[in-house]
Structure formats: C-alpha cells, structure tokens
C-alpha cells in the first residue's frame, strides 16, 4: 500500500502519528521509513520532521535504517536466558554469518534482540516478522531458517 493511501485513512491529527508509522512500516519490505517519507508524513500532519523522527527514534519497532527481508528477533530476557537462549543466538549467528544488529549480505535476514515476547512459558522464543517460534532448539532454528531461505528462492 502506498504512503498516500495509508495517510488518507487518517485524519490530519498529530495523535495519529504513531499509528501511521506502524502501519506504513508494516508495508515495507525493508522495515524502514526513509527521510523523504518522514517529510511526507510531517507535511500531511502539519508537524515538523524533527517531531516525526523523534517518534521513530523512540520506538524499537520503528526504524529508519533498512533491514533485511526477514527480521529475526530473539528474546534474551531472563526466562529465555535461563532456558538456553544463548545457544539459540549462537546457532543463528553461525548459520546466518552475522551478529545481532546486522543484516546478511543478501539482505534476506536481519538478526536482532527483542524485549520479552511473553512466551516465557515456551522459552526460548523468537519472532520472525510477527510470527512467534517457541520452545526453540538449535535444530529447530536451523529448520526454520532453511524454510525461510526456501521461501525466497
């Protein structure tokens, strides 16, 4: 969906800013909002670009830095941490060849940490583009990643 059509769903009220950003970023395959788009949103709402940028900068689900096609978010909070999360992260780093915070060279995956996914009863857990994967083991992780790799080829 184009930015114009998303904007047209909202009134020109400053209070819609976060919703607009979340909904629009959802449509972007690189999970990021550009400076030009910030300008367009700011103009639509009649606020400064600085204001829009400050909102993006505050929320971890929003980004101005382009990411890979699939964003893998690993939970590392205590309930996952004490349930072998570090082995999960190591596995991911190994098979993707990147560290947390990085994107693979083919722009397919970005690996990052997330705050608690509320899956502590099925720890360790991760999320890929909104889909939760829980009770992870290194083998399970390998299977999930190859499935995503297959999807894009």
């Amino acid at each position: 969906m184009s930015l114009e059509s998303i904007l047209s769903k909202f009134t020109k009220a400053e209070t819609n800013l976060l919703e607009i950003l979340l909904q629009y970023q959802e449509t972007k395959t690189d999970h990021a909002i550009t400076e030009a788009e910030v300008g367009q949103i700011a103009a639509y709402l009649g606020v400064t670009e600085t204001k829009v940028a400050s909102v993006i900068s505050f929320y971890t689900l929003l980004s101005m830095k382009p990411k890979g096609r699939y964003v893998i978010q690993v939970c590392k909070n205590i309930p996952c941490f004490v349930n072998e999360q570090t082995a999960i992260t190591r596995t991911l780093e190994k098979i993707l060849g990147i560290h947390a915070g990085e994107t693979t060279a083919n722009n397919l995956f970005t690996l990052e940490y997330t705050s608690c996914l509320g899956c502590c009863d099925n720890a360790p857990a991760m999320r890929i583009d909104g889909k939760i994967y829980a009770n992870l083991t290194p083998d399970k992780v390998k299977a999930i990643i190859s499935e995503y790799r297959g999807r894009s080829s």
Binding site: I78, S115, C116, G118, C119
Partner: peptide
C-alpha cells in the same frame, strides 16, 4: 505487558 517473565495478560 512488557515486564519480562509476565505473560498472564497475553
């Protein structure tokens, strides 16, 4: 419900 270890609201 962002407090790590809480999932009862979910």
């Amino acid at each position: 419900e962002g407090e790590p270890g809480n999932f009862k609201d979910r």
